[in-house]
Amino acid sequence: MRNKKATSEASSILTIPGLQSAGWPAFLGIAVILIGILAFPVAFDVRFYFVQVGILIMFYATLGTAWGIVGGYAGQHSIGQAAFVGIGAYTSTLLYMKLDISPWIGLIAGMLLSALIAAVIGYPLFRYGLKGDYFALGTVALGLIIFEITTSFSTITGGSQGIPLKYEENPLNFQFPNRTVYYYIIFIIWILTVFISYKLRRSRAGFEMLAVRDDEIAAARGGISVLKAKLTAFILAAVISAAAGTFFAQFILFLDPSTVMSLGISVQIILVAVLGGMNSYLGGTLGAIILIPVSQLLASTFTERPGTDIALYGVILIVLMLFMPNGILGLFRNSPKWRKIVGW
């Protein structure tokens, strides 16, 4: 008798966060939502503007979710994350414009280059015990260096003038006559990112990141390589950001440093993650759903007063940090059931 009890209890004790604890209503809900998202551009007679907003939401949801891996799970606040968006965008674009290499290959190349740069920068930053704040500083510097370099080498990058991408309708060139296709491409990138984040949260590697975030010293005592956990998170986030960057350049067919890698983009990424709740795999998505339409509205309202929207972001960030540092999904952390579902 006792044995049986212990076994059933055992499975309940060591369950890790996941949707199965919510049962079939959750799966039904997810199915409905996903079908809704997929049907949105075609089933309804929507203006392309709204499809475009949908694309932006998924773009930032992807970046926010990726940031959640390094900033939320591993607790390493990368403040120059847009640098990786830029690396992805510029790698594929320059390969395409200068060497006529398909942006699909450029996408992979950008991801690889991002991984490399994240590793080269991240390794010494983490290796020499640069915790939390110092890492944040290092990423600010990284973001600014890459921004400055891209702007300075204008013969190759087009500098602050930017480069328009040549347009040749060809799926092999990541260019489609029907612009709705971009909606589905970013959908795939987004859903994959959320899936990776979800799986990671349930995996050994994810646990190690959370442990490192909470207490590096105790994590090491548990046999966890602090360096490996942080570096994995940083590289993973960089790679995903680069993929999103390539997508974005192909979507808007124009590239300049301030569109893809300004501090403003980094801020937007952080804000999306923080608002939704950066510890959850759904945080970036929720944050983007709320923030992106608002930011569109703000930007179009205050066209005469540029800066107003970002100043308001500053206020939102301060208020969030003062009163709701764990974001919206963080409010669920005290309910054991919901905690598992949102993967806190």
């Binding site: 801020v267 540029p306 800066g307 972001y313 500053g314 206020v315 940090m321 003062l322």
Partner: peptide, 16 residues
């Protein structure tokens, strides 16, 4: 992130 927010507010507030 609070000091970061203050920075955004002051800098872009001035711009606006």
């Amino acid at each position: 992130l609070i000091t970061f927010g203050i920075s955004l507010l002051i800098q872009n507030g001035a711009l606006a």
